[in-house]
Write a protein that binds this DNA or RNA. Structure first.
Lengths: 111, 111
DNA sequence: ACCTCCATGTCATAAAACCTAACACATATT
DNA sequence: AATATGTGTTAGGTTTTATGACATGGAGGT
């Protein structure tokens, strides 16, 4: 997995930030999670941690809903998409550890 | 300013995340802020919001301290660096608005 | 017109995260 | 010995997030 993908999958954002970036309410975000359209990680205290990919996904959901699709429709759409791309299930903690190493040693966000 | 830079300057991370990513304590982070080595934005409730650039900076600070430099040394180092690059003082809210637009319309994190 | 479902709003309550300020301390500098 | 530095720790208060329950407006079916 590239450093870029790594970064995009790192769950670092609290719901408040996501709310601001997506212009969704937390009610909506939680509802979508409840219906398995997103799957944010959880911090130690049980709070949701979103990745940039999660945000993308939320924005997709928003678009689909605006376009008239139902939650169920979207579930199926995502299911189909996923049937193509499988095999990338690194645990978040593994990602975190990996990225920490990079940070602590050589890696920097800036190129 | 490129979309990339925009994203890197967006203040989105709470101190807890920064703590995990940098392996600094919040005490340290706040102390560095107090001595003006970093300048995280603040959310409505007054809580710090860090950008990816802020994280870079914190990691730099860490390196300098490990290398034996004092806070004051680092202040000067940064001051010199800054004397070269001036003129990019878009307000955070402007950045946020701008990015929101992109998100809401066409832009996506993913390519 | 009535009923039901769906997506969302709202409220209550509790826990987690964060804030500032103060005091403590070990190490280095003078 | 006295002072300065960077960090740990604790206390008390505020903000954010979590869950669960109840309410509601609109769409579609009967």
């Amino acid at each position: 997995m590239s450093e870029r993908e790594l970064r995009r999958n790192l769950a670092i954002l609290p719901i408040g930030t996501v709310r601001e970036l997506t212009l969704l309410t937390d009610r909506q975000i939680r509802y979508y999670e409840q219906h398995q359209l997103v799957n944010p990680a959880r911090g130690n205290g049980g709070q949701r941690r979103f990745s940039l990919n999660d945000i993308d996904r939320l924005l997709e959901i928003k678009d689909f809903l605006d376009a008239g699709d139902s939650i169920k429709d979207i579930q199926e759409i995502f299911a189909k998409q996923h049937r193509k791309a499988v095999g990338k299930q690194d645990s978040d903690s593994a990602l975190r550890r990996s990225l920490q190493k990079e940070f602590a040693q050589i890696g920097r966000f800036s190129r």
